[in-house]
Design a protein around this nucleic acid. Sequence first.
DNA 1: ATGCAAATGATAATCGTTCTTATTTGCATT
DNA 2: AATGCAAATAAGAACGATTATCATTTGCAT
Lengths: 141, 141
Amino acid sequence: MHQPDHLKNAGLKSTLPRLKVLNLFETSTERHMSAEDVYKILLNGGEDVGLATVYRVLTQFEQAGLLVRQHFENGKSVFELNKGDHHDHIVCLQCGHVEEFYDKAIEARQEKVTAELGFAIREHSLHIYADCINKKCPRKP
Amino acid sequence: MHQPDHLKNAGLKSTLPRLKVLNLFETSTERHMSAEDVYKILLNGGEDVGLATVYRVLTQFEQAGLLVRQHFENGKSVFELNKGDHHDHIVCLQCGHVEEFYDKAIEARQEKVTAELGFAIREHSLHIYADCINKKCPRKP
DNA sequence: ATGCAAATGATAATCGTTCTTATTTGCATT
DNA sequence: AATGCAAATAAGAACGATTATCATTTGCAT
């Protein structure tokens, strides 16, 4: 799906670290990863990259539209592959698991409220913090 | 409105730094202030407080329910007097001005969506980032 | 093969925030 | 009003996430 050409298309040279990071997001079962996550996973996988490079590459991918950045309340950013859609997030306070959702009604009301207050909406972040109840917590902090 | 007794009621000794911070939030025209903001304003006003104390006091006030903390995407927290109501925020990307709003429909949908996914909602943060259009930007970054 | 701009990696620096510890303060008790 | 002591403070060190610096290496067009 995303391949070296995607880097070229985005105006980015196809370098080893970039391919490694992109590949990780495409193959990992974990959709949401922080810079530190990516760094550690690559190291543990025997891939040799610098932490600074990971940060740089993630930011470039975000600007290129390959990844989307989420700022969570603990002060860390997590990244996810850009599926092209927009969605918001529910974060389990117990296990940190992230669930995505999209609600047309919420999106519509946001537009309306913002316009009424005389703003032109650019972006928004809606993060719901909750406890899993029905589901088993899939991963501990 | 909020006075020394409020500190006592919250189980907090009525100390000078605490009174200064509380008083600032009650009298300032700026409703949303970061720890750094509070620190600088007090210093400029000739009040001698430590930055660490400001952080501690803000956190205590948050726990006591006197203030509410907001995490914005730049990684800074801002605090505001707890009016008792809940509301979300629109932040102007140009001037940083913060506007508050409340939308019953959005709140209701959040509850619904979260419940449907098997979570018990604890809290949420909805931040809309936008540009002022009708209004003059009241303050530059 | 060569050259050079662009990218990398190691490390230092920065920023907001929290921790540590010696000193000071609020306040209940004499 | 003086005393005692736990609680609170101030200064600075420490911290975690992120960004900047800069010498070295790489991708890739020639």
